[in-house]
């Protein structure tokens, strides 16, 4: 009985480390393949594609990994054959500058436009307001001259008309 248990334990402990090493490799390859594009179904990664070629390439990637190649070396191996297109993360080089920096250039251009337009608008507003200000001052001066101005009931017909005319721009 004890012997059987020991034998079982031996088998289990003998198996566990290799299983772990395999898991680690699987995990590493899965991570690596998730960043690689399948050439056949171009919107799938190498990890998730069912295409024949993807299976072949996964096998190739595993062979390279088992031969001790690093992730970068494996990526270079595929890029040499299929081009940068296999990388979901395109490398930074003169041809891809527009791709990498284009959005930031657009963002900067948008921000500059926004600021310039905002400024010219703010500068334009006081000019319009000056007319209103004069009208408002006139109105206030008129109201101050007539003590009844505060009480609408006491305001005469003619005065109300001119008052309304003066008030109009204020509403607008």
């Amino acid at each position: 009985m004890i012997r059987a248990l020991l034998a079982a334990a031996y088998v289990v402990f003998a198996l566990v480390p290799t299983a772990r090493a395999d898991d680690a490799l699987d995990l590493r390859l899965r991570h690596l393949e998730s960043g690689l594009r399948c050439l056949v179904c171009q919107n799938q990664t190498l990890a998730e594609s069912d295409a024949d070629l993807a299976a072949d390439l996964r096998l190739e990637v595993r062979k390279l990994a088992l031969a001790g190649k690093s992730d970068d070396e494996i990526r270079d191996y595929l890029v040499a054959r299929y081009g940068d297109f296999v990388l979901y993360d395109p490398p930074l080089k003169p041809v891809t500058w527009l791709l990498w920096f284009g959005p930031f250039v657009l963002l900067a251009a948008g921000t500059v436009t926004w600021i310039v337009v905002g400024r010219s608008r703010r500068r334009a507003t006081p000019g319009v307001k000056a007319e209103f200000e004069v009208a408002a001052r006139n109105l206030l001066a008129g109201a101050a001259a007539s003590p009844a101005g505060a009480a609408p009931a006491g305001v005469g017909q003619a005065e109300t008309d001119s008052g309304d005319a003066a008030r109009q721009p204020l509403d607008g």
Partner: peptide, 13 residues
């Protein structure tokens, strides 16, 4: 037969 040379030549279709 195993497509190895195809991979070296960048064959994907």
């Amino acid at each position: 037969s195993d497509g190895r040379t195809g991979i070296d030549w960048g064959v994907y279709g």
